[in-house]
Every structure is written in structure tokens, then in C-alpha cells.
């Protein structure tokens, strides 16, 4: 049943305008010739050019991409094991502690997570840098990965696994030939989610980073505090384009799979 058309369409238009207008303005004004961010002075790509000569920004982008890729792999691995433990292992001692430790980081303010990680690294005498950021990111993103993979596991037909076992496949064989192919799409989306969350994180990175490991959000943040610049607009537009492209590819891939 579709209800009255006009109010519905008007709501959709207003809602999506609110969601997308700020992003659209940011992208449009990244092509502004003027240094004044809110006054249009003609089309130009000069800010993109100056972006690529900003070596500090590029170095930070590299660090962020590396941290995100590595921490997302750890998060997907840990998240998969955690999802199996939650979905398939039944009751075990201290299960409620484990459940709490998986779900709490999803909502706990990042400042608390960052602060507690910094304290443990100081207490253990670990020098903060690249690997402490990886550990911090892998920790909070594994919880998101576990939720995504658990949802897929819950929807899987277990009779397929039982059939494989009945036909003589061992647990490893069953996992590799039956479970893994069914789980693969969830593993890919869990990795992507972990990658993007890591790439985006400012707070936990600020607490866990050390000298020489400034991530891209930390670099952007310190520049944004000084004011809006067209160069940041250009940087942001590139990041938005990359995420948009990734979303488009995954949407097309899932449509192909479904049909």
C-alpha cells in the first residue's frame, strides 16, 4: 500500500537534501578558484594540484591506509572467531563478560576507549606509534566485524554442514568447502566496515599514536581547527569519491550475486 504521494515525496526530498546538501557544497567548492571558501570565483583544480605537493598530508594518508588495511584484517579474523563463539558454542563460563566486551565498544564513547588504551600502553611501557594505533583500531572494529559476521552465521542453513559431515568431510574440510563460501560476502563487508571505521577514526588514533605516526584524520583535524581551507575541501572530495566508488562497486556486486 502506498499512502498519499505528495507528503511522502516532499519528505523524501527534504530528508535527502538535508543529508546530501552539505556534502555536495563541500565537493562543489573544492573546485573554487578563490581561497575564500564560501564565495564562488570560477572553476579551478588548483587545490587538487597543491594537495599532491603537500608531502605531510600524503605521508599521513599512507599511514592511515596501512593502519586501516592491517587492523581490518586482524578485526575480521578476530570477529569471525568471536561470531562463531557467540552463535555456535552455546553456553560457556563468563559468556556474559564476552558478550559485553563485544557489544560495549559499539556504543561506548571513543574518548573512553582511547583514554583506556593510552593508559595500558603507558603502564606496559610500550612506545606508542604505528602498531599501537593498529591494536586500538583492531580492537573496536573487531566488535563491528563480529556483529556483521554473526548476523550472516545466524541466517545460514546448518543442514548443509551436517550433510557434508555425513558424507565424510572432516571439520576443516567442511569449514573450507561449505561454511567459508557461504560466509565470504559477510567477511568482505566486515573487512570493508572495519577498514572504513579505521580510516575515519580521529579520537582513538590521537590517544594511541606517537611521534611520526600522524594519521590522515589527525592531520585534517589539526588543519580544520585553524579554519576552512579549499585544500581540505579537495582532500575531503577525494575521500568521498573513493568511498562512493567502493559503495557503488559493492552494490553492483551484491546485485549480480542476487540475480
Amino acid at each position: 500500500m502506498t499512502t498519499a504521494r505528495f507528503p511522502r515525496v516532499a519528505t523524501l526530498v527534504f530528508g535527502f537534501a538535508f543529508l546530501y546538501a552539505p556534502i555536495a557544497l563541500l565537493v562543489i567548492y573544492s573546485f573554487n578558484a578563490s581561497k575564500l571558501v564560501t564565495v564562488w570565483a570560477g572553476f579551478s583544480t588548483r587545490w587538487y594540484a597543491s594537495l599532491f605537493s603537500n608531502t605531510a598530508l600524503i605521508a599521513s594518508a599512507k599511514i592511515s591506509l596501512q593502519v586501516a588495511a592491517i587492523s581490518a584484517i586482524i578485526a575480521t579474523f578476530n570477529g569471525t572467531l568471536a561470531a562463531f563463539a557467540l552463535e555456535r558454542f552455546g553456553a560457556f563460563r563468563t559468556r556474559s563478560v564476552f558478550v559485553g566486551a563485544i557489544y560495549a565498544p559499539l556504543v561506548i564513547p571513543e574518548v573512553i576507549l582511547g583514554l583506556s588504551l593510552l593508559l595500558i600502553f603507558v603502564a606496559l611501557g610500550v612506545d606508542r606509534g604505528f602498531w599501537t594505533i593498529v591494536a586500538g583500531h583492531a580492537t573496536f572494529t573487531m566488535c563491528f566485524a563480529a556483529v556483521v559476521i554473526r548476523a550472516r552465521l545466524a541466517g545460514m542453513d546448518r543442514s548443509l554442514e551436517e550433510a557434508a559431515m555425513d558424507l565424510g568431510a572432516g571439520p576443516v574440510m567442511t569449514f573450507a568447502r561449505v561454511v567459508l563460501p557461504q560466509l565470504a560476502p559477510a567477511l568482505v563487508s566486515a573487512w570493508m566496515l572495519a577498514f572504513i571505521l579505521s580510516l575515519d577514526d580521529l579520537v582513538i588514533a590521537s590517544f594511541t599514536s606517537g611521534p611520526g605516526s600522524t594519521t590522515l584524520p589527525m592531520r585534517i583535524y589539526s588543519q580544520v581547527r585553524l579554519g576552512v581551507t579549499p585544500e581540505i575541501n579537495a582532500m575531503s572530495s577525494l575521500l568521498l569519491a573513493a568511498v562512493g566508488l567502493a559503495l557503488l562497486i559493492s552494490a553492483i556486486a551484491s546485485r549480480k550475486r542476487d540475480s
Binding site: I220, I232, S236, L240
Partner: peptide
């Protein structure tokens, strides 16, 4: 998309 960028916008 980046939280930081959306706030910045």
C-alpha cells in the same frame, strides 16, 4: 563517509 569531513562541511 568520513565523520570528520561531514562535521567539517
Amino acid at each position: 563517509t568520513s565523520f570528520l569531513i561531514r562535521v567539517y562541511a
